[in-house]
Simulated assay, not measured.
Amino acid sequence: MLDALTIVLAVGAVVLAAWCGFAAYRDQPTKDWHFIGMAVVALLATVQLVVGVVELARGGKPEQGTVIFVSYLLGAFACVPAAGFMSLAERTRWGSATVAAGGVVLAVLELRLYDIWGG
């Protein structure tokens, strides 16, 4: 897999988490700019999903197993959109906190994906 893409996605997730965490600290709900940030991170996760599937189709083998790799890849793909939809339901500071938590989870999933692939 592309190490650079994994690093960029993990850094983007941490930046999104810090940004939304700061909004939660200031008692603000998620705003349009936060959703644009989530869209950028979700787009990067989509690119990573495609790259991961292509690598598997070309014969690449994750060191720790294909099933666990695909499971983490799908989890990383769904993490930020799920947090974004949950923040729409909770239009208080806790919506921002939810997205911040989703960003932290995505960053951890990226580290684990890197390890599963054999980084």
Rank of each mutant, 00 (worst) to 15 (best):
M1I: 10
D3K: 11
A4H: 14
T6F: 08
T6P: 00
T6R: 02
I7P: 06
L9A: 12
L9M: 12
V11Y: 03
V11H: 07
V11C: 04
G12D: 07
A13K: 06
L16K: 01
L16P: 01
L16H: 03
L16C: 09
A17R: 00
A17C: 11
A17P: 08
A18H: 13
W19I: 05
C20L: 15
C20F: 08
G21I: 07
F22I: 14
F22E: 11
A23W: 08
R26S: 04
R26T: 08
D27E: 15
P29T: 04
T30A: 06
D32V: 08
H34F: 00
H34R: 02
H34E: 03
H34Q: 04
F35E: 00
I36S: 12
G37E: 09
M38F: 07
A39E: 07
A42F: 10
L43D: 06
L43E: 10
T46M: 12
T46W: 11
V47M: 15
V47G: 10
L49T: 15
V51P: 03
V51G: 07
V51I: 14
V53C: 15
V54Q: 00
V54S: 12
V54W: 11
E55W: 04
E55Q: 02
L56V: 12
R58G: 14
G59F: 13
G59E: 13
G60A: 02
G60W: 01
G60Y: 04
K61M: 14
K61F: 13
P62T: 05
P62L: 02
E63H: 12
E63A: 15
Q64C: 10
G65I: 05
G65H: 04
T66V: 11
V67Q: 15
I68Q: 13
F69Y: 08
F69K: 03
F69I: 07
F69L: 08
V70D: 05
V70E: 00
S71Y: 05
Y72A: 07
L73D: 03
L74F: 03
A76E: 07
F77N: 07
A78G: 08
V80S: 00
V80D: 02
V80G: 00
V80F: 09
V80T: 12
P81W: 10
P81A: 08
A82M: 14
A82S: 14
A82H: 06
A82L: 14
M86V: 05
M86F: 06
L88V: 02
L88A: 07
T92R: 03
T92V: 00
W94P: 08
W94K: 05
G95S: 12
S96K: 05
A97F: 09
T98I: 15
V99Y: 03
V99P: 03
A100Q: 04
G102L: 04
G102A: 03
G102E: 02
G103W: 02
L106K: 04
L106I: 03
A107T: 11
A107Q: 10
V108F: 15
L111A: 10
Y114R: 06
I116V: 05
W117S: 02
W117R: 01
G119F: 06
